[in-house]
Design a protein around this nucleic acid. Structure first.
Lengths: 130, 130
DNA sequence: CTAAACTCTGACATTGACGTCAAGGTCTAC
DNA sequence: GTAGACCTTGACGTCAATGTCAGAGTTTAG
């Protein structure tokens, strides 16, 4: 199938699919004229990609995940990176956890600011941010 | 005091202070030659700014918060925006909460991916991202 | 065979709070 | 009055996954 069909069937845009290919996540063949030709299994593959993106994984790590967990036929040169993959993913997990903690802290600070502003507007200055 | 002293006393960089001025958060006077001259109270003000930034507030909203909660002498034209300020802040709070929820979902998805990869590397494919 | 629909590549724009450099002007201790 | 530390503005770089053009080529239904 061509790019717009794959886009329609996956909910991605053509631009996204080209981007995924550019980063080694998809490997469509080409018509003589140069049009991308995708296979049926690419529908599932794009689904996986978007799921992994939703897991906040950066594209370069998704490439490795796909190379290490997909059907063994499509192994990518980086497959040797499969051993340290777990470390990568655990690192991403920690990064994400830290980010969540930061945002949770920010939200508490913001709650304080809200209270501060509420009081200030009621003419009782008592700053949460001193 | 000049910019580097304020930087040293607040932990900010000169770049940050210029950026804050550029966005209306600071209003230093100038020497004849054009050097910025900050006052003692700017030390505290920068502290507030950084606290508000840590609360994940965008610079344009911080300007309004400062205008509405600071000493009344330094009121900025936008002070009229004080009434809808609470709405803005509550909107930011919700935005932040949503962002946190998204990331928490991503983390759970990533936990699933981790398990998947762990199993795949143990030769038992059972994908979390199908 | 041609028009319409589709696709291609390449490149710039977006978001935000800065970092970092360049080319030049200012201040101050001596 | 001058060296050297400090300061100025301006502009581009950063990170990431896309959006969105432009200009050109391909495919296909009729």
């Amino acid at each position: 199938m061509r790019i717009s069909e794959l886009a329609a069937r996956t909910g991605a845009t053509a631009r996204m699919l080209r981007y995924y290919e550019q980063h080694g996540l998809l490997r469509p063949s080409r018509t003589e004229g140069g049009f991308r030709v995708f296979g049926e299994d690419d529908v599932e593959r794009v689904g996986r990609i978007r799921c992994l993106l939703a897991a906040a994984l950066p594209i370069d790590i998704i490439r490795i995940v796909l190379a290490c967990t997909g059907e063994r036929e499509i192994l990518i040169p980086e497959a040797e990176a499969c051993r340290p993959l777990m470390d990568l993913l655990e690192g991403e997990f920690d990064t994400l956890s830290n980010r969540i903690d930061e945002l949770a802290n920010s939200r508490e600070a913001l709650r304080g600011v809200l209270d501060d502003v509420r009081e200030t507007l009621a003419r009782q200055p008592h700053p949460a941010c001193p």
